[in-house]
Amino acid sequence: MKREGVVSGAGWRCIKTAAGLLAPLEREVVLGDLAEADRGALRGLIDVLGLAARRQIAFWTSWRPWAASLGLALPASLYLMFWSVAAGDAAGSLVGEPSNLRLLWLCLSRLLLLSCWSWTTGYTVSAVSRRTLWASLLACCVPCLDCLSKWPGHGLSGLELLIFLVPGLGGAWCGRQQLRLGLSCAIFLMAIAMLAPIMAGTGGWMYGCWLLWPGGYLLTKAIRRPALISKSH
């Protein structure tokens, strides 16, 4: 029979927090096993962390986490930072000359491209490997923090670099929720993604081409399971 004191202490709360690393169904089973076996908080905590580590290692035997983190999140963050600065500069110029239609168009187009690319990338990163999203976030944050530390401006100007994170995190959230895209929406995002190599200019067109694959991934996914935006459970 289980002793109530063990399952209500601080140790048990630690175990429950650590069990958050596991999938919901497995979490319940593991907590139930630990409550039934009642071998002490430390042993339980080691067991849960050990299982979570084994599960994470198992994820990395697939190509998906590698493609999401090193294949997309890392290079895309560098590219999107460049576009964040470009969009920020255009917005700054527009504030100086609000009646300039050319600047308005430049600002809106850059913001639109940035939002679409960033959302598409975030969605793809999350959809390709949902369980290792933490690693993709890390792969995205490392170059961001590096660039931020070398940023020549002062005050809030460094935040220009990180504009892409807003739509990017939105896309990642949608991918995590397994939100399905309609075909028209996927075609639109793919078409926008194809503008990346054109807009990248002479130096970065190959880099832009590499970033076409999130758009292709969205399109393939929408063709395989055609549906209007809806949540699958």
Binding site: V7, V29, L31, G32, A35
Partner: peptide, 15 residues
């Protein structure tokens, strides 16, 4: 397969 939740397991199911 998952069993029905039991009290010994704090109301959790068993595999």
């Amino acid at each position: 397969q998952m069993s029905a939740p039991t009290q010994e397991r704090g109301g959790r199911a068993k595999r």
